[in-house]
Design a protein around this nucleic acid. Structure first.
Lengths: 154, 154
DNA sequence: CGAATAGGGTTGCATTATGAAACCAACTTT
DNA sequence: AAAGTTGGTTTCATAATGCAACCCTATTCG
């Protein structure tokens, strides 16, 4: 059964999920952020079926999250690199990782936090902030108009 | 074919996606953040099939992202409310929304930004920051050990 | 009191999504 | 020429999804 797509949705989150909501997509983006570029490396690191990886890479390229670059060596060799659009998923992926770290620690107890390369210090939790930089919770943010849009869109 | 699950994965993002990576799950969480609580409201707002909604709500409750509360009125009436774990997905959802707003504007041109309730000012883009509050990019964050873990886990 | 409504499910079925594994085409190296 | 490299493509079986009907309990209404 074809999943519902949210192309015409007024909800940004829904439209975002159209592009990165397929199983594996965000993990591919994550590995691209780690520096992975080649098909075989994505495949081996992720343990993903080749046909699925092919499909996802193709879609991420179509959606301009990644671009496919000829790498010249050895015949049909390509690299997949993040676009700016793709790189802008960094806060999403980090926030998701921090959520996972906090609420679902690794089964083997290893907890490898993210650190600032320059200082070696752990980075801050990703938070939602207002224009003055003060952290905001769900209740502090006005989302009424978006809810209205979602209701109207049905 | 059963999707690969990442229960034993050393990758936090993968484990997080186990819980919120199913089609519809994040949108349900989003609507819970808007204040939606009742089954029929989720269903109507999202336009989701009842069996799928039921399945997703059940899983989100099992994973303690939501809790199911008896609301007392009119027979078997329940409400689904965010737990603290669920509320901690706020930065994820906001970051995703902002990504969507930036790179996939609404088809009808409406762009409803998120605002600070108290001031009415637009909120900041969600960013990754170091301990001094300075914004970090992908390259500024050390993720080598996580990549190693992902490689080892295979 | 029986019918209708409210509420949240459950079931059956058809189509798509996913994964495993084999196969493929073009290019390069031995 | 055979083998290796690279990134696909294809086949098949099982799971995931959506539609729509059905279900059960509780409450309300005529």
């Amino acid at each position: 059964m074809a999943r519902k797509r949210f192309d015409d949705s007024n909800c940004s989150v829904a439209r975002a999920l159209n592009e990165v909501g397929d199983w594996w997509s965000l993990l591919i983006v994550l590995h691209a952020m780690y520096g992975t570029r080649r098909f075989v490396d994505f495949q081996q690191q992720l343990g993903i079926a080749k046909n699925i990886l092919c499909d996802r890479l193709s879609k991420l390229v179509d959606n301009e999250v990644l671009r496919k670059v000829e790498a010249g060596e050895h015949g049909s060799r390509f690299e997949y690199r993040l676009t700016e659009k793709g790189r802008d998923l960094f806060p999403v992926v980090v926030a998701l990782r921090q959520w996972g770290d906090k609420w679902n620690p690794a089964p083997d107890g290893k907890q490898l936090d993210l650190r600032d390369r320059a200082t070696g210090q752990p980075i801050q939790p990703v938070t939602v902030r207002n224009s003055d930089g003060e952290p905001l919770t769900i209740r502090d943010v006005l989302v009424a108009d978006d809810l209205k849009a979602a209701k109207d869109a049905g």
